[in-house]
Design a protein around this nucleic acid. Structure first.
Lengths: 201, 201
DNA sequence: GTCTATACGATGATAGAC
DNA sequence: GTCTATCATCGTATAGAC
């Protein structure tokens, strides 16, 4: 699901073009996350791929569109999760099941780097149409997990549970800790946070 | 403590200069947080203040230095918190007391907008020397709150507790919720997260 | 001491040749 | 599908007005 072509222009399947497009996406995502979106010039990306700046403009009509190309995939995935959630009651059990499904989409689609990019470049993404949509979906996600009329603490706990899944890398910085350990810890903390039922006060 | 002059150049107390400098900081912090650091041009900031771009360069020798000017204040505050923490044992009680002190510095110094800026522009700040220092301090803070040899879940819970204090605004987006309600909920969730003692597994 | 005028190199983007 | 050439705008720098 993660590597599917989005809009298939004629003879694309032969390889050359899609390959370049995919390589641009990968290099861009890496650089955008490491050094930041604005500090990464198109010239850098082009040089790393052995082409010129203008060549990128054949595959993407703007720098912003490169970002859209990997964020929109994530958006779809989240929409599916919301759709499933809306067929379920808002119970701790469903929330735990949801967390498991959520991390599965994160790993299966290799979206962990995408979510890292999102966090690192919040302000940048917020100014893009795709960023607004993503914000909406995350709100919808939380609203589907917990009643918006519930106490704020309950809503916050659950939102932070989701958040923990993304930001464990940022928060657990010891060099001898592996990504797997981080993810395992994040999963456990997330499950704890969404399991707590609503309590008044 | 929040509005103190940092380096007092001669007859500064008369007002004119410090006023402009402070106004630049305020406008810049606002714009940087809303639209992002890189998307905010110095021309915009200057125009909003009714001066020219070059005037900003009299008060700050670079765009980055504007950011440093409000981040370094926060850095000092955190250093003091770390110093206090190191005189204390790493118990849930101390952590709760710490959380109360932490939110106090956040409100007394009006650092909530600064922390919001930090989160929104993570990638940008990471590339600055002051950003590296801040990262170090936050690691040191977590290490002073919980034994780095403790289970990862314990470390993550406590780090997320700190995080909740900053990001409640981002996560609780309902328009009818006031900032005070948000902060109160964040405080409660933070206290819960740091109160949990270490448990194996 | 506080600011304006002006210019420099690099950036994202566009147009048109091959 | 990729290139060269070109553009406005950006952060930065300096010279000089008051």
């Amino acid at each position: 699901m993660n590597d599917t072509v989005r809009h298939d222009p004629g003879r694309a399947a032969t390889g050359e073009m899609r390959d370049t497009r995919t390589r641009i996406q990968r290099v861009a995502l890496d650089l955008f996350t490491e050094r930041g979106y604005d500090k990464t010039s198109l010239r850098e990306i082009a040089e790393r791929l052995g082409v010129t700046k203008a060549a990128l403009y054949y595959h993407f009509k703007s720098k912003e569109e490169i970002v859209e190309s990997f964020l929109s995939d994530r958006l779809e995935e989240i929409d599916e999760l919301i759709a499933w959630l809306r067929t379920q009651p808002r119970t701790p059990e469903v929330r735990r099941e949801f967390i498991l499904r959520y991390v599965e989409t994160l790993h299966a689609g290799r979206y962990q780097p995408v979510m890292r990019f999102l966090e690192s470049n919040q302000a940048v993404v917020k100014g893009m149409p795709i960023g607004l949509k993503l914000r909406e979906r995350f709100q919808a996600l939380v609203a589907a997990l917990v009643d918006p009329a519930a106490p704020l603490t309950d809503q916050l706990r659950i939102a932070m549970g989701l958040w923990a899944l993304h930001s464990s890398w940022f928060v657990l910085t010891a060099p001898e800790v592996t990504d797997e350990q981080r993810q395992e810890a994040a999963l456990q903390v997330a499950l704890e946070l969404v399991s707590r039922p609503a309590r008044s006060g």
